[in-house]
Amino acid sequence: MPRRKLTDDLDAPFSERVLDPLLKRFLGIGRRLSGADTGNRIHRRLELAGNPAGWTVDRVVSAKVLCAIGGFIVGGAFAALLSPGSTARLVIVVGGIVIGFFAPNFYLYQKSYDRQNEIQKGLADAIDLLTISVESGLGFDAALQQVARNTTGPLAEEFARVLREMQIGQGRTEALRALADRTNLADLRSFVSALTQADSFGIPIGQVLRVQSSEMRVKRRQHAEAKAQQVPVKITIPLIFCILPCLFIAVMGPAAISIMHTF
């Protein structure tokens, strides 16, 4: 019987024999190192990032410890190659540990930022399509299904999730408010607020959608104009440190060489 049990243990996948116990140990360490509300913050960040496949709160906490160990190894190797003083070596190693520990947080922040940016870009077009569908005679749920089916991106995924939540018995207002809670976009929150108020007061949904569609187009144009006005400011640093030195070298270099030859 013990031999059979040993054989079964060896036949188990490597992830079950080694990785899972290791991640559980890392999870305990990560929970002790993190704050009490870390789980809630990571869960919120995962919601904003669209709940990437395979990512859970426990795995993120375990990954923080694993990346901290990786940062310690990389920092130690880098310090050994540079051979600095003891203080500088300690700073490099500690910096590697800190960067590794917070690397999963940076990754989730970037994922959530990119996803919210994509939702912002597709919101105006999605509302236009939703308005056209409702004005053509479809109900709001059917129009929402058309938008989720005929568009791509995170906003289509969110609309599909709203439909699934309504199909399992959740009310339309609650499903739309859950959609607003899963994002941090003011435009989407105002759109959901207008829809829920129209549903509460019995206002025709087509009229609300027309107003929201017009407002979203204006906001998208204003957002594009604001981005265009930021270009001169953002290009100043590359212009000063990258373009102008090369230009000075190309223009003044031959003159400097001629002066050197003359004197």
Rank of each mutant, 00 (worst) to 15 (best):
K219A: 11
V162S: 06
L209H: 13
F191E: 04
L155V: 10
T196F: 05
V208H: 04
A148H: 10
S214H: 08
V192T: 05
P154A: 13
Q207T: 12
Q167E: 12
Q146N: 06
I205W: 00
R164K: 09
Q146L: 09
Q146W: 03
P154E: 07
S200F: 09
L209A: 05
E157M: 08
I168G: 03
A143I: 08
N184I: 10
A160D: 15
A194L: 14
Q146H: 06
P204F: 11
E174S: 13
Q212N: 08
Q170G: 10
N184W: 10
P204W: 11
N184S: 13
R177A: 08
A148W: 13
A160S: 12
V147P: 00
E165D: 04
F191S: 12
V208D: 02
G169V: 05
E158M: 08
R161L: 15
F201V: 15
G202Y: 09
E165A: 08
S193H: 05
D187A: 01
S200T: 14
L209P: 12
D199H: 03
A186N: 02
R164W: 00
F140R: 02
Q222V: 06
A148Y: 10
R217G: 09
L209V: 06
P204Y: 11
N150L: 13
T183D: 03
L195S: 04
A160F: 03
P204G: 10
P154T: 02
T152N: 10
R217T: 06
G153D: 01
S190W: 05
M216Y: 00
S190C: 03
A194V: 12
R220F: 01
D199C: 03
A194E: 13
R217L: 11
Q170M: 14
R182P: 00
A142C: 04
S190F: 07
G153H: 00
T183E: 01
E158N: 02
A186K: 03
T196P: 04
G153K: 04
N150T: 14
A160V: 05
S193N: 13
V208T: 13
K219C: 00
A160K: 12
P204M: 07
V218P: 00
Q212E: 15
R177C: 07
Q170T: 12
T196I: 11
L176W: 04
A143G: 08
A142G: 04
T152Y: 02
S200Y: 08
